[in-house]
Design a protein around this nucleic acid. Structure first.
Lengths: 151, 151
DNA sequence: TTCCTTGCAAACGATTTGCATTGGA
DNA sequence: TCCAATGCAAATCGTTTGCAAGGAA
């Protein structure tokens, strides 16, 4: 189990661009900027956070539209975080499967990767829960909440 | 106009009232109504849903204020659901610990209780995750997403 | 050139708050 | 009684959308 390291987007740009192109979506400056900010982040980011991190150079409305497009094309994944704010991060196929630790005080969200053993155990739990209600599990997330070191 | 009290809630009214009284919070008709609606629900409810279920007898603004107060006094727990809508349910000490299955299609949320064995296994996972990032786990939740039988 | 994309402002839905009034302990 | 709680309307916050102008293929 370890903190995730931000992957360099460079080697992935090609496959991302292809994915967009296939659907007639252009790989523009603004979209590149958003993706690179997400690539450098240590956890999911909201529109407002990205707006700040990009030096307000991408207007909020464009940012929201970019997030919609990138989600639709499967390049980023949405997360329903604290206080009903939507946060996004690079899709699993780019960033890998992981979980979140949420600080109940400051609301910060951090990525955590489980080791294979633990993740396998979790997968079994998920199957148990899902089958008990007759549901085909498409996704799961384990959220652990508590006060982080800074708070 | 009388509000029905859910049977399961009745033996707890005293301790809830005490909890409120301790903090100078009154146990009013509207708050009783909200609690009884939550007591009768099979999953977390949003303000809008409660508004309907209470026959619009409690104005939305009062409802929101009630939810804030009840959360602050630890009588209900918030649940950050799909699409930026906040849902609430009776606190764990009233309702018992459980988890949620979310339908990725219709957004319905349903409570699931794990058997002791499974819950214990989950608790170990949570401890593993939390201690690895130096966080004192105050709460955890396992959310399983998928398409429900109706969808 | 042809569409897709952007930027601005206005529109929106969910939630919050100011203020005068009501009501519970 | 006295202060918390309510109801209404207006304000706010996060997010979406209409429309005219700009930009990538």
């Amino acid at each position: 189990m370890k903190y995730m390291t931000a992957p360099s987007l460079r080697p992935l740009e090609r496959s991302i661009q292809d994915r967009l192109a296939t659907r007639g979506v252009r790989f523009t400056k603004g979209r590149r900027a958003v993706l690179s900010a997400l690539g450098a982040a240590d956890g999911p980011r909201s529109a407002a956070e990205l707006y700040q991190e990009l030096g307000q150079r991408v207007p909020l409305s464009s940012l929201y539209r970019t997030l919609v497009v990138l989600e639709e094309t499967g390049v980023i994944d949405p997360h329903h975080g604290l206080r009903g704010v939507m946060r996004y991060e690079l899709a699993e196929w780019i960033r890998g499967h992981h979980h979140h630790v949420v600080c109940s005080s400051c609301g910060a969200v951090e990525d955590v990767e489980l080791d294979e053993e633990t993740e396998k155990e979790l997968a079994r739990l998920v199957d148990t829960v899902a089958s008990s209600v007759g549901l085909d599990p498409s996704a799961h997330s384990l959220e652990v909440e508590g006060r982080c070191r800074r708070c």
